[in-house]
Design a binder for these strands. Structure first.
Lengths: 112, 112
DNA sequence: AAAAACGTCAACCAAATGGTTGAATGTCCG
DNA sequence: CGGACATTCAACCATTTGGTTGACGTTTTT
């Protein structure tokens, strides 16, 4: 089931979860190691990881007794595109945008 | 007080609020007019607008008995930058962008 | 085999969220 | 002035959220 914008944005709304994502930017991590720097229980972190997984922002793979957490940055794309619709054009690839425009406004599709 | 990433992302996590933002993309609107298409009470919409204002995503200016709501897209920048840190966002998904244009702005919108 | 490590589950709790209704406030108009 | 309109406030309710603790099932280590 593809995650919704609701899931992605509300997953990002929690500072603990954003920190976890930033940690995973460095490297894949086991659940216990993700939990280590935080001042909450392992179970709480396990729940956060469940939310991030449901939102598609990370994936989890169990190898032996260790469950590895891996960042899935592609899940941010849909949300990023939504935001860019509000004028954050400096954030997008202008070449790709021009390419899009020339395709849309090309000779055969030009509005009368 | 500058809004936090928490406030921005959790404001964006609600579909009603995202729809309101998309409506304000077209034009400034009065609270009553914002509420009109939704199937909830005016008070509920008023609360949503309060959340959006606290997040800095809109501003509200009272002129006479009418309170005008105006999109403040700059508030998205901080959140957008945070997401950019996760990479692979530079090549915008053109299909998704087109989808945004047609879905959020509506088919009646015409290019100038 | 027993112990330790890894992680989740279940039950519970407090606080936040999104919704309702009805009264209250302010403003325009006849 | 008095009424209609625009918006918020206050009190309330159900659900969700983020947290806890302790028990539990697996896998590794000794």
């Amino acid at each position: 089931m593809t995650p919704t914008l609701d899931q992605v944005f509300s997953a990002l709304a929690d500072p603990t979860r954003r920190t976890i994502l930033a940690m995973l930017l460095e490297d894949d991590m086991a659940v216990t190691d993700v939990a280590e720097p935080f001042d909450v229980s392992l179970a709480a972190i396990s729940k956060h990881l469940g939310v991030l997984t449901a939102a598609g922002l990370i994936s989890q793979e169990k190898r032996g007794r260790v469950k590895w957490c891996k960042l899935e940055p592609d899940a941010l794309r849909e949300a990023s595109v939504w935001m860019q619709g509000f004028g954050q054009m400096d954030a997008i690839d202008l070449d790709a945008f021009e390419n899009f425009l020339s395709k849309e406004l090309g000779p055969s599709t030009q509005a009368p």
